[in-house]
Each structure stands twice: as C-alpha cells, then as structure tokens.
Design a protein around this nucleic acid. Structure first.
Lengths: 186, 186
DNA sequence: AACTTCATGTAACGAGTTACATGATTAT
DNA sequence: ATAATCATGTAACTCGTTACATGAAGTT
C-alpha cells in the first residue's frame, strides 16, 4: 500500500496536518502494522492536493511554519473507497529475530539469551502500548484491531516464555563458535 | 537485514546456487519471515564472491546455464558470525488487512466478509505450509521456529474466527457507503 | 545548557523489485 | 499445446528513507 493511500486513510479518520499524520504512524493506531516517514508523507500530501483529492488550509502560527491542515475532498473520499475495494496485499512479516534464531546453534548461549530477552522486552512494550491506546473516534473497529494486536503479541510472549529453556539450550558453549560453526567443530 | 547477510545465512545451512537460495525464501524455512528476489540475490552473490566471502564452483549442465554452487569461505563464515552478534532490528509487521479493517464501517458488509475470508484462507494456507515443512538438516532450531510460526498463525486464525460476527457487523449496508463514509451520512 | 516537541520541506541516496533477455526440459 | 521448473543475469525503475535546512517554545 502506497504512502498516498495511507495518507488518505489517515485523513478519513479526520482532518490533520502532515505532522499529525506522522504521529498516527509513529504512536497511533497505524503504528503496529504500517509505517511512513516525513520524507514520504509531505510529498504525498502535496501530490494529493495537486490532484484534487485533498484541500489544504493553512493556519498561521507565531514562531512556527504555518500548520497546514488537510481535508479529504469528495474525489479523495471516492479514491479511498476505490482503494478499499481493491484486492488486498498479503501481510508481510519480516523478522531478523527469527532469522537469527535459526542459527542459534552457532551462537554462544549468552547471546541467545540476550536476543531472547530483547525480543521479549520489545514484545511486552508493544503489548502495553496497544493496551494503553484509546479507541479512535468514529472508528468502531479500532477496538477490534486493538484486541487483535494484543492477542497476537501475547501469544508470542507466551510461546517464547514457555520455551525459554529449550531456546537457550540451542546455543553452544561460549568461545567454541565465535568464528566456526558448531556443526563444523570436532 | 541486507540481502547479502541473508545469502550468507542461507549458505550457512549448506552450499547452494542462487536459484536454490531463492527457493529457501520462496518456499523454505526463511519464507515466513524474510524475502529476497533474483534481482537482489544474484548481484549479492557476485559481490560476496568478489569480496572473498564466498567461493563459486560452476557445474556445467546440458541445455542450461552452468549451475553455480556457492560455498562460504572462512572469511564469509566470520562475517556472518559478526552479523549475528550485531544488534537485531525490530521485527516489521505490515498488514494492509488490518489497515483496511480500521475502515470496515465504510465498507459494505459483503466486502468485510470477503476480506475476512481471504485473510483466513491465507492464514490457514500458511499454517498448513508451516506444519508440512521438514526440519532443516544441521539446524536444531528450525523445529522451534516452525512451532513459533504455527503457534502464531493459529492464534490469529482463532481470534478472527471467534470474532467473525463482530467483525462482519462493522460493515455498513450495501450501497450506503460506496462513495461517502457512513459517519458522514444522515 | 541540552533535549524534546512542534512544524514543513527537499535532495541525495539506498536497496530492492519488476521486467526483460534466453532457452532447454518436464509435466499437465 | 501450455505451463511450470530449472538456471543465470542485467537494467530501468519505484519507492521510500536518511539527512539536512530552519527555527521557536517548552521542558529537564
């Protein structure tokens, strides 16, 4: 999904500035399953406005650049509906953690524990963040999406905690595998 | 994680050609949490060989291009160990499904059912693929990574099935929301 | 003092995907 | 016949990130 569509979606939740949209992707509803940076949001907003999908109102402020608040036009709303009716791309899950875990037998046990702990910490933080989030106004499904996220992160945490010993047992003795794989030793 | 590192990892499981490495990312162990295309694998392999991290043996075949089988050198093995000891990037989960679900109230109920069914089908197929996979030789942790994947996909399937009615109830009446958001109606 | 938040915008750069080029073999 | 599998490689292109430019106000 292009940043342009993501912006359209953000604005379908209510008028907002580029800065505020960024926050939605950083801390808000969207942060758990999508991403966008300033460098892509601002040009997208400009393009969308040029194409007539958005209107822009500049609110002048003291000591700061004008706050440019964008709103969907009817054309923009229609374009977003159109995007919503399009086939949906399969989800993408990229995990360097799992990739590395495949090679646990080539790592010192201490390192395995370390990455496990880091992962658990990350997962718990995300779980807490999801639970702490308020539901989004005018968006009854934000509640459901929240529950989904909480359910899945919890399920990961449970698995990793239940299998902690098994995972740590995969590592090899310290020093023995720093430059040669265990399978090639002896 | 760069394609170069991913290739190093693939070769740490055993010698392979570019084509075979691609398969690991398409159907194999890595397919559930990483990705790489021919257009990135082949150049990476060439670069890695130039840098002395890999050696390459060409096996001539009839009616086909030489099969170039790559192996890790000691330098390559060390480079991979080094990569493994580096801080691990946080996982990325990108879901157009969840993004769209946030706007379920702006979709006809039929459309909501459709995307739910598609998602469930996708999830079940992935779950079956994980269960059907054999463990990777010399890689005791592949079993664990398999279990993790099976556990998580199952947990998603369960949530979506248990909440099917609630999710479908989010949609709006057919026709009423094709070009205007429900919240703006009435 | 130093850092974070608010606020917008651009340009260079990175990294990978898509599509093309080529072509025999095997399965449906 | 038609499609999939095997097999490698390149070039154009897409898309987005990172870093920079600018700067006031508030917080630690």
């Amino acid at each position: 999904m292009h940043v342009r569509t993501l912006c359209l979606g953000a604005l379908a939740l209510g008028d907002a500035s580029g800065y505020e949209i960024k926050k939605l992707f950083e801390d808000g509803v969207f942060s758990h399953f999508s991403e966008a940076s300033f460098g892509s949001i601002y040009p997208a907003l400009t393009k969308l406005t040029d194409d007539g999908l958005l209107t822009c109102q500049a609110h002048s402020q003291e000591g700061r650049p004008d706050k440019k608040v964008y709103s969907l036009t009817d054309l923009g709303r229609a374009a977003f509906q159109e995007a919503l009716s399009q086939p949906i791309q399969a989800d993408k899950y990229r995990s360097d953690f799992l990739f590395c875990l495949i090679f646990a037998n080539q790592m010192p046990t201490l390192r395995v524990s370390e990455i496990l702990d880091n992962k658990l910490k990350e997962l718990k933080e995300e779980h807490n963040r999801i639970e702490a989030e308020g539901i989004v106004p005018n968006t009854p499904s934000s509640d459901l999406v929240k529950e989904f996220g909480a359910h899945v992160t919890l399920s990961m945490i449970e698995f990793l905690e239940e299998n902690r010993l098994r995972i740590e047992a995969l590592g090899c003795e310290t020093g023995a595998c720093l430059s040669t794989p265990c399978e090639a030793v002896g």
